[in-house]
Amino acid sequence: MIDILINVTLLAFLATTAVAMARMTNLFAIIMLFGIFSLLSAGLFVVMDAADVAFTEAAVGAGISTVLMLATLALTKDHQEKRPLGHRPWLPLGVVTITGAALVYGTMDISSFGDPLAPPQTHVAPYYIEQSMADTGVPNMVTAVLASYRGFDTLGEVAVVFTAGVAVLILLGGRRKKQRLEIEEGGNRDA
């Protein structure tokens, strides 16, 4: 009962936020709504018993990406112009509607939530549940899969994330230092 209530309300909020984001023009408000969107989906993940996914969503979606987008907004200038649409939106609307209908049709084949006979539950999961302790000696199954069975995969992911972080820091930090130098030069000229 409470599950259904929470699910329906959170999904309604999610849809409201998404439509509002698509229709707004104030970029700062849109970034704040992104944060709310991420918190809402994290709440839905918790209700669906995926606490680790919800944790990642809250940390990355509501935390880091909001701050990164705000930093980008602070660095860039407001170049948006309100100009009338040069084309009619019927073709994009039709493409989106057909794609959405195909995706909804695709979800009909997905097994119902928590079904023990669903393919993901019967494929390799039993092996991990029975053998991960004997194979790797790691008590947590998710950690065993991520850090031992798929260790090289995780190493590659870490390398990608590290490279992206370095690139972002170079972009943000370099710009800020340059601005400070310009301000200092301006001050010297005045003196």
Partner: peptide, 30 residues
């Protein structure tokens, strides 16, 4: 799940501090 809730509270706090710092130092055209 209570641990998750605690971590959320921390993330929320840090996130709002970061946003406020950026608003203080950046120009948001509003």
């Amino acid at each position: 799940l209570l641990d998750i809730a605690l971590v959320y509270a921390l993330i929320n706090f840090i996130g709002v501090i970061a946003v406020l710092r950026l608003v203080e130092h950046g120009d948001f055209h509003s």
